[in-house]
Design a protein around this nucleic acid. Sequence first.
DNA 1: CGTACGTTTGATCTTTCTCAATAATGGTGG
DNA 2: CCACCATTATTGAGAAAGATCAAACGTACG
Lengths: 235, 235
Amino acid sequence: MLARKLDLHHRLSAEDQSAILALPHKIRRLEAQSYTMREGDRPDRCAVLLEGYAFRHKVTGDGSRQIMSINIPGEALDFQNLFLEESDHNVQMLTRGVVAEIPRSAIEELVLSHAEVGRAILIASLIEASIFREWTLNIGRRDSRSRIAHLLCEFAYRITAQRLKPEGFYELPMTQEQLADATGLTAVHVNRVLQSLQREGLIERDRRMIRFLDWQAMQDVADFNPRYLHSPEIA
Amino acid sequence: MLARKLDLHHRLSAEDQSAILALPHKIRRLEAQSYTMREGDRPDRCAVLLEGYAFRHKVTGDGSRQIMSINIPGEALDFQNLFLEESDHNVQMLTRGVVAEIPRSAIEELVLSHAEVGRAILIASLIEASIFREWTLNIGRRDSRSRIAHLLCEFAYRITAQRLKPEGFYELPMTQEQLADATGLTAVHVNRVLQSLQREGLIERDRRMIRFLDWQAMQDVADFNPRYLHSPEIA
DNA sequence: CGTACGTTTGATCTTTCTCAATAATGGTGG
DNA sequence: CCACCATTATTGAGAAAGATCAAACGTACG
């Protein structure tokens, strides 16, 4: 279950794979909104997301929230924290879901005894860092229309690469307020932009389902180039 | 020279230290604005910054630039790229400076033979990722005043922690246009905000020199909490 | 079937951008 | 050392994107 799902973007030997498989872990079912890590916590375990979606966020002193990334099934939620003393951000479930929790000590040992696994964890962490950089560009330098389109493209691309997407449409399990917190906008403005994308025939919406009517046009509006995802697969 | 400067935020054994010391490298003097890495390049070496300042940035399709971080002496510039196939961003010198260039292959071997060094590189990369996240929060959720104050605080804090700062003031080697590209603002607005911080007696400026007149007040304006820097030292 | 949460709409306000002009500054060649 | 040129900083006026506030409308779920 664990090794089949854990996506490390890096080929591992059978021996390394079975070392991962042998990792002690506890399967845990989580409700939407529950935290797997809070800013200030000492990380003592790593959750691997098996089902459902999660997100990372931080909050300013005056209480506004910025979401810094979305996590999809197959991704480890806590590599960003596990090797540091103290978490600098929150990790929260977007939907209900299932995680496998691995004790920190087991991973520490694995990394020291299996250098290639350490390398794989480094690579996965660096790819996430690349996503953070793209989000900084997105929020700092694109207008609201491109920003939102970019988020939609990234999500569609990633779930497609992970073979989680059925057929031209998908569920984006985020409220408009969460979308706003991910793009540095307000929920009201997100609502208006979504409506305008719909009016122009780029997407269709039903509830939280999004259907792309023109993938190429969306990519153009979004200024989306998947290079930063460092994905071996093609969408 | 190399190991004395390379700052890895992680204690290493004498054996690991001397392995780093033994790394083949070439000292190179670089002019301001010169690139050490461009988006799309295959990373084949890692530059360690010995003198001067550098920055990371990306450019949107319509040509606007977003700076994602500043690097100061002692930091490795290319851990973010070295373990991936293709660079997803540019790294450029802010000032003239000196770097030590280490071949990728030498680092790859070192990481596989010295697991603790690999761990140190992972930690350094994760700290940089934490800085990316804080910048996303800064740009997405703080107003222009806090944003700029935050950048000034971070820079002051980091050069202080690295013992590069002389005495209450320091040179921030950035034009107002670069400051704008780092904060998601325009140069004109940066100019006005700097003047207002000065008018209110928070900072003094002379050329690119910045003097903090009230460190606590600046931290308050900036909503600056150094936790995200994961720095062992105290400022 | 009521309540809490999320979405949509309209009106108005503010921050920040844009455009354009002027003033300083720094570095360079003579 | 000085004149010149390119870059950077500063200022003002007007425009625009997105925020804010407030209310109404839907919808899911207990």
